[in-house]
Amino acid sequence: MSHFFEPLPLGKLTLPNRLVMAPMTRSRAKGGVQTPLAAEYYGQRAGAGLIITEGTQPCVIGQGYIDTPGVHTPEQVEAWRRVTDAVHERQGRIFVQIMHSGRIGHPSLYPDGALPLAPSAVASGGRMYTPEGMLDHPTPKAMDLEDIARAVEDHIAAAKYAMEAGFDGVELHGANGYLIHQFLADNTNLRTDAYGGSVDNRIRFAVEVAQAVSDAIGPERVGIRLSPANTTNGIEESDSAALYEALIRALAPLSLAYVHLMEFGGRDITKLIRREWPGVLILNPHATGEEAAVTPEAAEAVLAEGLCDAVSIGSLWLANPDLPARIKAGGPYNTPDPETFYGGDHRGYTDYPTLDG
């Protein structure tokens, strides 16, 4: 699997390999603040070409799940600094994923009991775990222009905080049905102003956030994650090909560090984005056959085909902190324990064994 171990220039970094640790929520950050255990967890995985952290809210109203970390207070910055130090001490590279959840939230998560914000007042139809148990997502508050401007500013502030915390860059979460994706999709964006209706209007918020954050910290430190045609969290796109072609063409002049594409179903849009995007493309390929997760063999295949420049892998990183070494050795691989994915302590978090014990 030689393609994995070719260096890759990314912004001002050079990745020593093309194995990216995908962002994965772990819900172990009590009160939105990472613990020292998180520093151990990410430090163990510093052999990745690039680590992209779990989704991290840029503001209180952007939180979507219980015990997820933030990057909008000095206390959170100090906690994240322990994480970035642990990764850098092992010669790793790490971007924080900035994730505003939009309508995927609940008043119980917010101190003032406010409603989640979204492009339009359309509920997800889903449910979430809260301190009071499983509850329905409420109908969100439709954002006015002041709310939109504030959301852009929140992303800028979070990106600046991320630089203070020692991150090598930030990834904007424009996928999986969260706020940026909610602006893109025509079933969640029913607006009739400059942010809704046409494709050009629906991509406006994503481009504005990417431009603003790039201006604040430098485009070479900014990536964006997209998931065309992904139906997660109640999303429906009637025009995915046209939508993402327009978005990629609008983002191209910004010279971002990368686009991180989460593949959902067919490969036609992946090939379209590969043609249109002039920079680094990281692909999280969809699982094939009977496999529930992406295998090293499937990941190597998309690299060999030239569909991307690097591959992001999810659950294998959870159970195999030394994943590059295991791939070089041809395995074996630890099996992830789904019972420990969210919440809990060190079990299923920092206690998976490495090949050398």
Score class of each variant (00 low, 15 high):
Leu37Asp: 13
Gly234Pro: 10
Gly32Gln: 12
Tyr195Cys: 04
Thr139Phe: 05
Gly197Glu: 11
Ala292Ile: 04
Leu109Thr: 00
Pro111Ile: 07
Ser240Pro: 15
Ile203Lys: 11
Pro321Leu: 08
Gln76Glu: 10
Tyr333Ile: 11
Asn201Ile: 05
Ala159Ile: 04
Ser312Tyr: 03
His3Trp: 04
Thr139Glu: 15
Thr192Trp: 01
His286Asn: 11
Arg127Thr: 15
Val222Ser: 04
Gly218Asn: 12
Pro9Asp: 09
Arg191Val: 06
Thr73Asp: 05
Asp144Cys: 03
Val213Asn: 06
Leu303His: 10
Gln34Phe: 06
Ala114Pro: 00
Lys30Asp: 02
Glu291Pro: 00
Ile327Glu: 11
Ile269His: 01
Ala301Tyr: 02
Ala149His: 09
Met163His: 02
Pro140Asn: 13
Asn189Asp: 10
Glu245Phe: 08
Thr56Ile: 10
Arg249Ile: 03
Thr232Val: 09
Val33His: 08
Gly306Asn: 05
Arg267Tyr: 04
Leu19Thr: 05
Gln63Ala: 14
Leu272Ile: 00
Leu50Val: 08
Ser312Trp: 01
Leu50Asp: 08
Thr188His: 14
Glu236His: 15
Tyr41Ala: 14
Asp268Phe: 08
Leu256Tyr: 05
Glu290Thr: 13
Arg150Cys: 06
Tyr349Lys: 11
Ala293Glu: 14
Val311Glu: 05
Gly31Pro: 01
Ala142Tyr: 09
Glu75Cys: 03
Leu247Val: 02
Gly177Pro: 07
Thr14Phe: 07
Pro138Ala: 11
Glu297Leu: 12
Thr231Glu: 11
Asn176Cys: 02
Glu305Gln: 15
Val213Cys: 06
Leu37Cys: 01
Ser101His: 13
Arg127Ala: 10
Glu263Pro: 02
Met143Arg: 11
Phe95Thr: 09
Tyr342Asn: 13
Pro296Phe: 06
Thr35Lys: 11
Ala293Arg: 09
Tyr342Lys: 13
Ile235Tyr: 00
Ala287Gln: 12
Thr232Ala: 14
Ala242Ile: 09
Ala46Leu: 12
Asn334Ile: 04
Thr68Asn: 04
Ala38Ser: 13
Glu300Lys: 07
Glu290Met: 07
Pro353Val: 14
Ile104Asp: 09
Ile217Asn: 06
Ile203Thr: 12
Ala123Asp: 10
Thr270Leu: 03
Pro332Trp: 09
Arg90Pro: 12
Arg18Met: 05
Pro16Ala: 14
Asn320Arg: 08
Gly223His: 05
Val122Arg: 14
Asp144Gly: 09
Thr231Leu: 09
Ala206Gly: 09
Ala242Pro: 01
Phe341Gln: 02
Ala175Asp: 04
Cys59Val: 04
Leu323Asp: 11
Pro332Met: 09
Ser2Ile: 02
Gly102Asp: 11
Ala46Asn: 05
Thr68Asp: 03
Ser27Ile: 00
Gly218Glu: 12
Glu89Met: 11
Asp200Gly: 14
Leu37Ser: 10
Val83Trp: 01
Leu303Ile: 09
His155Pro: 00
Cys59Thr: 12
Asp337Ser: 13
Thr270Asp: 02
Asn334Cys: 06
Gly196Pro: 06
Gly102Ile: 10
Leu272Val: 01
Ala165Ser: 07
Ala242Gly: 15
Leu109Arg: 00
Val33Ile: 15
Gly70Ala: 07
Pro116Ser: 11
Leu172Gln: 07
Arg82Met: 12
Pro219Cys: 08
Thr270Met: 01
